[in-house]
């Protein structure tokens, strides 16, 4: 058990404009194989990663958003979205691809403090 650490992946960037969101998701999927305690956090523009209805045909880029739905199958179930970031973008939970836990900034900060490893992309 001593080898189980709390990993938090912090996503603060929007998808498609840069590759960070996609490659971050690749790390998350791999981490699932290591039986660690994984949390995924979406803050600031990172919230846009979870927007429903992404249509990427017109930019000739792979739509990777369905992969967020697959996370559950990898036993990655701790997905957190920052309330203030979501609201600032005119979004509600209804707009998101997956079920998430919505946290206030303060709750998010407290969750960060509990982590052993925080990776941000």
């Amino acid at each position: 058990m001593s080898d189980v650490k709390k990993f938090m992946f912090v996503n603060r960037k929007a998808p498609y404009g840069t590759i960070y969101a996609l490659e971050s998701l690749e790390v998350v999927l791999i981490t699932a194989a290591f039986d660690q305690d994984v949390s995924l956090v979406f803050m600031d523009d990172g919230v846009y990663q979870l927007k429903k209805g992404q249509q990427t045909k017109g930019i000739e880029t792979k739509n990777f958003s369905p992969a967020y739905r697959a996370l559950e199958g990898y036993d990655i179930e701790k997905l957190y979205v920052e309330r203030e970031a979501m609201e600032a973008r005119g979004l509600t939970e209804e707009d998101l691809l997956v079920d998430v836990t919505v946290l206030s900034r303060a709750e998010m900060g407290a969750l960060m403090d509990e982590q052993d490893v925080v990776l941000s992309f």
């Binding site: 080898d3 650490k5 990993f7 690749e26 790390v27 791999i30 981490t31 194989a33 290591f34 660690q36 052993d116 490893v117 990776l119």
Partner: peptide
């Protein structure tokens, strides 16, 4: 990528 996770552990 497992090497990154391993580094974290």
């Amino acid at each position: 990528l497992g090497q990154l996770v391993e580094a974290g552990i």
